[in-house]
């Protein structure tokens, strides 16, 4: 009914967090660059691996993509309309209760699945980078 709204809400939070973290990372890099130059920045990047802002943007893309395409599915099924209140379930208190129940069950499950898969993706990405850094070919 409106389960995609949970994913969309998480996407907004994650996007804002990613932008804020990106700004703080840039500030940190600027400080390191002014102290130790470009080499110090490269060393910092190597030590940090994949920046958190980038990882969070992966999650944001997954959530925005999912929420957008699911919103279209809801339009297809007539659950979302282009006029107020936009959600047909809002016209009837019984339907509204059912919609809220669906959001708290299906919607939350969807958001959790996306977040868990993203967490696994981050771990895998870090492991791949570590493996490449330790490989003899890379160090040659």
């Amino acid at each position: 009914m409106a389960c995609f709204l949970v994913g969309a809400a998480e996407a907004i939070v994650v996007t804002v967090a990613s932008k804020a973290i990106k700004a703080s990372e840039s500030k940190k890099e600027l400080a390191v660059r002014s102290k130790g130059g470009e080499k110090a920045v490269d060393a910092l990047r190597e030590k940090q691996g994949i920046p958190w802002s980038r990882k969070l943007m992966w999650l944001a893309y997954l959530l925005w993509g999912g929420a957008f395409l699911l919103a279209y599915e809801h339009v297809w099924h007539g659950e979302v309309v282009p006029w107020f209140p936009f959600l047909t379930a809002m016209n009837d208190p019984g339907d509204t209760a059912e919609m809220l129940h669906e959001m708290s069950t299906v919607g939350v499950t969807m958001a959790v699945i996306v977040t868990v898969v993203w967490a696994l993706l981050c771990v895998a990405a870090d492991l791949i980078l570590k493996r490449r850094a330790n490989s003899p070919l890379e160090n040659a």
């Binding site: 389960c3 995609f4 994913g7 992966w58 893309y61 997954l62 959530l63 925005w64 993509g65 999912g66 929420a67 957008f68 395409l69 699911l70 299906v106 499950t109 969807m110 959790v112 699945i113 996306v114 898969v117």
Partner: peptide
């Protein structure tokens, strides 16, 4: 990301 995001959400559904 678009397709995987939607696939994971539909998996939940």
């Amino acid at each position: 990301f678009l397709f995987w995001g939607a696939s994971l959400m539909w998996l939940g559904d």
